[in-house]
């Protein structure tokens, strides 16, 4: 079967089947927002959502992670208990899946393979959910993505109203499709409807700039006086970095007590003055202007130099959550329009 159909009446049974096979991490409603969490029951899955408050990167790269425990006496090191459970990441949006694909070469490169990230990453089959209702802050089409982008996914579901179109992308996805219960072969009209819907959603997301354009314009923008004006509003709170699906900087700290302790890895951000503070007291990014510039330049310029692609996926979280309404689209556009 190339493409399958799961009717919504069978959704509960399908998710229950997945839960039998392994841990299912999916969007779950909490208060008035949605977060990714390990499903306690099939009913808890919230597949009718715009996007999660925090990006699902935390499933593979947690906010705080114990790397190991140690004891000074006898120079002993203990591995933390392994909490990684094989299973499925269900309902991830294409922008966020693309973001995880961008993180892969950071944590898995010839010089260094990050076992903590890779073990989590390999443990989950990625089941995406195509976007059918983009938000006003969405701009994936400007960063090289699309509402039905399959990058980073093993399988993509698309909501067709009373049913999901199920498209396997990788061998892992095809294997899963063969195992899933209640899957029917997709009919020609399902495929036609899916394609029509895809075009309609894409039409709601006209590109504001292209990734290429943003890259080349920012290449000459380092000394531009415009940064000073853009920065005037920024509080440096780093909420943007915290909710960003591709921000991946971390700090490592030893929590030492009486000759024993643990080494912890924690999310960090280039928006903090401590991030670049040298032991000498010198800080190459002394002010918010340099720190804001770093974040934008890393996303749209430096990352492409290092990894071949820009590191913004257009999820719009930083725009939605910024307390002073900074808009990364406007910042990049300002340089594109110069």
């Amino acid at each position: 079967m190339d493409t399958g159909i799961i009717t919504k009446t069978n959704l509960k049974a399908v998710i229950e089947d997945l839960m039998q096979r392994g841990e299912v991490v999916a969007p779950v409603r909490k208060d008035d927002y949605v977060l990714f969490a390990s499903l306690p029951s099939a009913e808890a899955a919230c597949l009718d959502y715009a996007n999660s408050k925090l990006s699902p990167k935390g499933c593979f790269f947690p906010q705080a992670e114990v790397l190991f425990y140690y004891q000074k006496e006898g120079h002993k090191i203990f591995e933390p208990p392994n909490e990684v459970k094989p299973g499925y990441l269900l309902g991830i949006r294409p922008c966020d899946a693309r973001a995880i694909a961008l993180l892969d070469p950071i944590f898995d490169e010839p010089r260094y393979q990050d076992v903590y990230y890779l073990e989590r990453r390999k443990s989950k089959v990625m089941i995406g959910l195509a976007c059918t209702r983009p938000q006003s802050t969405c701009f994936c089409s400007s960063t090289g993505g699309s509402p039905s982008d399959t990058t980073g996914l093993d399988m993509l579901w698309q909501d067709l109203g009373d049913r999901y179109l199920v498209r396997p992308i990788t061998d892992r996805g095809r294997e899963l499709l063969a195992k899933l219960p209640h899957v029917e072969e997709a009919a020609a009209e399902d495929l036609a409807k899916a394609s029509e819907q895809e075009q309609a959603v894409l039409a709601k997301l006209p590109p504001i700039f292209s990734a290429e354009e943003a890259f080349s314009r920012l290449s000459a923008a380092f000394d531009d006086p415009l940064w000073q004006r853009i920065y005037e509003r920024c509080l440096g709170c780093a909420t943007c970095a915290f909710v960003c699906p591709t921000c991946h900087c971390f700090d490592i700290q030893d929590e030492n007590r009486c000759g024993q302790g643990r080494r912890v890895r924690l999310w960090d951000s280039c928006q903090f003055s401590l991030f670049t503070l040298h032991t000498s007291g010198h800080n190459p990014r002394p002010c918010g202007k340099e720190r804001l510039r770093q974040r934008v330049m890393h996303k749209f310029n430096y990352f492409k130099v290092n990894n071949g692609q820009i590191a913004c996926v257009g999820c719009g979280r930083c725009i939605r959550e910024c307390p002073v309404n900074m808009d990364i689209r406007q910042i990049v556009s300002a340089y594109c329009l110069r």
Binding site: K30, D31, D32, Y33, L35, K53, L54, Q63, A64, L235, G236, C237, A238, T239, F242, V243, S269, F272, S273, L274, P323
Partner: peptide, 14 residues
């Protein structure tokens, strides 16, 4: 030397 926003986000407060 980071703002309270960080700890608030970590707790997933509104």
């Amino acid at each position: 030397n980071y703002p309270v926003c960080m700890e608030c986000k970590k707790k997933e407060n509104i």
